Simulated assay, not measured.
Amino acid sequence: MFATRFERFGPPEVLSVGELPEPHAGPGEVRIRVRAAGVSPVDLAIRAGKSRSPIALPHIPGVDAAGVVDEAGPGAEVGDEVFGAVDVARLGGATAEFAVLAFWTPKPPSMPWEQAGAAASGIETATRALDLLDVRDGTTLLVDGASGGVGSLVVGLALARGARVLGTGGDLEFVESLGAIPVPYGPGLPTRVDGRVDAALDVAGQGSLPELVELTGEPSSVVTLADFSGPSHGVRVSTGALGGEPDGRHGLAAAARLFEEGRFRVPVEAVFTDAAAAHAAAERGPRRGKLVVRVSE
């Protein structure tokens, strides 16, 4: 099969397209013919050699993908349109002709491939964090780093729960377009936020935890996805199943239902046909949603 891959760790220029053996679905998995694949921070870290997971070379980048099932698995038949995520450490990535998904859900017929391909791991991360903070109807949530790939999904999913959402970001117009109340990014947050904040999620990892604790009044009301100094502030660090958290992976199906109801979308900043160009754009930042590689038509 054709695949984008790298044979050594390094900058986006190490990515090239070539032939690799096809993967095949094992128990509990499905294989898809990939239509679109997302570019996420973990993809950049793996390519740069900064991942803590052992990665065999050559390696195909891409955690998230959407496509058409061609090797069936539980709850999916050949020809079904699905979106989900791969197990990159075991099966390689998704920016290829074929990819094996470790978890997935049916793609709503009206959901564009680009939105579906960029969504899975970010939706699960966002859902896990919102569950930890018990975000529900009437909650006021502050998202520090609301404009990036994960932060923008957090905003949409929190609003769908009935929360009032404040979001920081460098592009306040984009934050407002997501439905959040925009708050300028950077130190001094408590001086720029009016009213109570029930819960706060740190997506940016830029040292804001003491201020987020001050705003919420309780370290238990703050979760971080990106600042591993969290425990020193009494703040939980959400890292998924590897961190000992439940890994129910119920977010995808819920997000698909919300999309069909017109209550959720995946903000896509740009679509590429060249994975190296997509990785380079992701490293430049700042983000306005997700970046996607179109793999096939």
Rank of each mutant, 00 (worst) to 15 (best):
R8P: 06
V14D: 14
V17D: 15
V17Q: 15
G18N: 11
H24A: 14
P27I: 02
R31I: 04
R33T: 10
V34F: 04
A37W: 03
G38L: 00
S40Q: 14
V42E: 14
A45H: 15
P54D: 10
I60N: 01
V63I: 15
A66P: 06
P74V: 11
G75N: 12
V78C: 07
E81C: 12
E81K: 11
G92F: 01
P112A: 13
P112R: 12
A119D: 00
S121C: 13
D131L: 10
L132D: 09
L132A: 15
D134M: 12
V135L: 09
T140E: 11
L142R: 02
G145F: 02
S147M: 02
G151Q: 03
S152E: 02
E176G: 12
S177V: 11
A180K: 00
P182R: 05
P184H: 10
G186L: 11
L189A: 05
P190Y: 07
R192Q: 10
R196W: 09
L201S: 07
D202T: 11
S220Y: 01
V223I: 13
T224K: 03
P231D: 11
S232N: 10
H233P: 05
G244V: 09
R257W: 10
R265T: 13
V266P: 00
P267T: 02
P267V: 01
T273G: 15
T273F: 07
A275R: 01
A275K: 00
A280M: 06
A281N: 08
A282N: 06
E283S: 07
P286W: 05
L291E: 03
V292M: 08
V293N: 04
